[in-house]
Simulated assay, not measured.
Amino acid sequence: MTYTVYQLKTKNNKIIKTSPTILYDYYPIQYPLKKCYYNTKGNLVVKENQSQKDTIYYNSKNQKIKMVLYPNAKKLNDSITFFYTYDIYGNITSEKTVASSPKLDYYLNGNLYSYKSLINKFYINFYVLEKDSVGIKQFDNEKVELNYYYRLFNNNNQLLKEKYVTTDKNTYPLKVDSIIHNVEYQYNNENKIIEISTVKNHINALGKTYLTKNTEEHNYLNQGLIHEIKYYNDRNLIMQQRYILNTKGKLLEYSNHWVSPNKTAIYKYNSNGELKNYIFKRKDKIERNITLQYTYNNKGNWIECIHFNKKSKPKYLIKRGIEYY
Rank of each mutant, 00 (worst) to 15 (best):
T21E: 01
N91V: 03
P32F: 09
L174P: 10
I229E: 02
Y70V: 12
Y26W: 14
Y57A: 11
I238K: 08
L159G: 02
Q241N: 14
G110K: 05
T212Y: 07
Y113Q: 02
Y294W: 04
I244W: 06
I180D: 00
S51P: 03
Q223S: 15
Y37V: 06
K315S: 14
R151L: 08
L160G: 00
I194F: 01
S79I: 10
L317K: 00
Y254R: 07
L104F: 07
F83Q: 02
G135L: 01
I286E: 10
P28Y: 03
T295R: 11
A99E: 06
Q241Y: 07
I15Q: 04
K213S: 07
C36F: 13
N91W: 02
K116C: 08
K285E: 14
Y269Q: 06
E217K: 15
Y164K: 01
T81V: 10
L251A: 05
I16F: 00
P173H: 07
G224L: 03
I80A: 01
E130V: 09
I238G: 08
R320S: 04
N297D: 13
K143D: 09
K213L: 09
Y187G: 00
I124C: 08
Y115S: 14
I16P: 00
Y164G: 00
S133F: 13
N262R: 12
N189D: 10
S19G: 10
H181F: 03
P102G: 04
Y27V: 06
D140I: 14
Q293F: 07
L118G: 01
Y150N: 06
K11M: 11
I279D: 00
V199S: 09
K11G: 11
T10L: 08
F126T: 05
Y149F: 10
K74G: 15
K121E: 05
N91P: 02
K276P: 09
T209I: 11
P28T: 02
F83P: 00
K137N: 15
T264A: 11
D168E: 15
K66W: 02
N62Y: 03
I279Q: 01
Y150G: 00
K161N: 13
N125Q: 03
Y37W: 07
P28K: 05
E184L: 06
L76K: 15
M239N: 14
T264S: 11
Y31Q: 09
H307Q: 10
K299H: 03
K96G: 01
L8K: 00
I29M: 07
R288C: 06
T93D: 01
L292R: 04
V98G: 04
Y106R: 01
N214H: 15
Q158A: 10
Q186H: 10
Y269P: 01
Y316P: 01
Y86M: 02
S19Q: 13
I266G: 02
N91S: 08
I290L: 06
L23Q: 03
